[in-house]
Design a binder for these strands. Sequence first.
DNA 1: CGAGACTATGTTATCGATGCCATGAGTAAC
DNA 2: GTTACTCATGGCATCGATAACATAGTCTCG
Lengths: 338, 338
Amino acid sequence: MTEANTRNRQPSMADVARTAGVSAQTVSRALRDSPNVNPETRRRVLAAVDELGYRFNNAAKMLSSGRSHSIGLVLLQSGGYYSRSAVTAGVEAAAGRAGYSVSIATIADLDTAQMERSLSKLADQGVDGIVIAVPLISVTRKMEDITSDIPTVTVDGSRTAGARVLGIDQREAGRVATQHLLDLGHRQVWHVAGPDEWIEARQRRQGWQECLAAAGIEAPPPLEGDWSPRSGYRQGQILAMIPDVTAVFAASDEMAFGLIKALREKGRAVPGDVSIVSVDDIELAAYCHPPLTTVRQDFYRSGEAAVALLLDDESAAQTEVAAATLSVRSSTAAPRTR
Amino acid sequence: MTEANTRNRQPSMADVARTAGVSAQTVSRALRDSPNVNPETRRRVLAAVDELGYRFNNAAKMLSSGRSHSIGLVLLQSGGYYSRSAVTAGVEAAAGRAGYSVSIATIADLDTAQMERSLSKLADQGVDGIVIAVPLISVTRKMEDITSDIPTVTVDGSRTAGARVLGIDQREAGRVATQHLLDLGHRQVWHVAGPDEWIEARQRRQGWQECLAAAGIEAPPPLEGDWSPRSGYRQGQILAMIPDVTAVFAASDEMAFGLIKALREKGRAVPGDVSIVSVDDIELAAYCHPPLTTVRQDFYRSGEAAVALLLDDESAAQTEVAAATLSVRSSTAAPRTR
DNA sequence: CGAGACTATGTTATCGATGCCATGAGTAAC
DNA sequence: GTTACTCATGGCATCGATAACATAGTCTCG
């Protein structure tokens, strides 16, 4: 009589079975694999499903099969909207294709306690696997416990006992960027790095250092930002006060935006006085002024690869590497000849 | 002997009960509410939980309680990395605070079939509620079925029978932006809109039209982009060929970036010759050249509000409105006096 | 034509937590 | 001192699907 009454409970497999005139087990078989089910029976079952608007109960399925067919994704709330979205999309797409759903757990800051909480939350949900898309600073006992129970992949190169590592070669990105500047004739390359807790940041910095070292150049002290355009702007103000700077490698496009703004304000033209290379190749990189020369990395593919690594037991040891390719635009040029 | 063997099944409530010397039922009570449990008993239970590393089984809980304590979030893969991330973060944060987890389902394009599939997927997972963060073009029977079974909130203003609507007043954004240009002395304001299927886009366009109408100005035909900087660039090339254009309202910051680039290339200075206002206030808006005057909208808050609306039955009819505030920077100026 | 293999289907136990009811201990009230 | 009631806890059925086992019928082949 009341409205609540109209909302009967969802039909169950037993209801379908009754309607189709078969047993629940047969319904289960008809709906999943199909080793041995009479086509005619299956037709009847499907008809009944359709008629009743049956929708299988995931909880029950999960309870009896022990698998949730869902994977967890740990993200950082701040810091690089771009790569975060791209990884998410890649993970979700690959998971979806494999019949898995994705649960997200974001952490506000790179903080051990929050990380533990997120992992616990995902573990409580019973995810079959976890993709960690943020750097693990220090791995606690509790994290180890969880990651050794549940297959885990980290996409940033952090290591923990149970977790496989998907290597995106960030050093390569640093090398490519730096080498490009050297090739243009610059004698020195400065660097605005990301936060040191991020493996990405460390690796890019390493690539930069290695590249300079290989060219026999002593690297200047790196400046450090936090990925944000604002931090790039800050560091740019500092760089603008150093006379000899002709080339800068920024660890992210967003920081490069800030960098350019600061340099311009101090009367340093880009690329006339200072060349800038960064990493990410976000969509806007081509539409700022000047268009950014930047190293493209396929985060979407990384997300996909992470899921593949997670679900495919065979390729256990395989760590895929996303190649780094340079998009040359107009923020770099040969140094001004004196 | 084999490695598989080492991975014993997770301890269950019964195991905890045995260890603590109580019944499973008592464990259940001790771990949840607490109407009638002896403090000493609870202590023993908690100790046992800790000792065994017990982690409750979500599937079982869900099966017996009928609630999954998870909500689904439908996102569009492409189109505006920014707002997508912000909404996601807001949803996840609010859901997390309420003890809910978030499952995502992305769709590649605005396509009815994909939308149906995503909703089905979420429904199959047994989510307790759904937040739809993409526009529903046409609502099919199947979608209605799902949204009437499961509480649903759409954050973009699309309407469907079962879904509540979280109104973010996009018309207001359009009005604020247009009015700003008129206040500066512009006699006409052009518009580069988002795709017409997006309610956001339509509403912003309406706001623009209404504002012009109120000022007694006949609106020029709107141009249409797809939110991407590239599409802004295309439309900018067209606008640059029209002599009288002095002010443009772009429906997103990203399109404004493209617009500015195109105008600049055709020799039209921003804001000297053409003023530009857009919407979103992404972080980079302040760091491009010139810094964008743009309307800020708090998508994070929208995400939070959507969850609140979903979980809080009381405020059923309440549609929260995120205010639109203008960030005035340097992409707008008074028109050149002749 | 009978043994073994294979097909299509039904029966029963089970996953792990919870809801409901039962029970015994302690306690307040008359 | 018996009634009535609360508190703390245990026992059992249950949620819905599945795995494992069971069974009746069909087919194949020597």
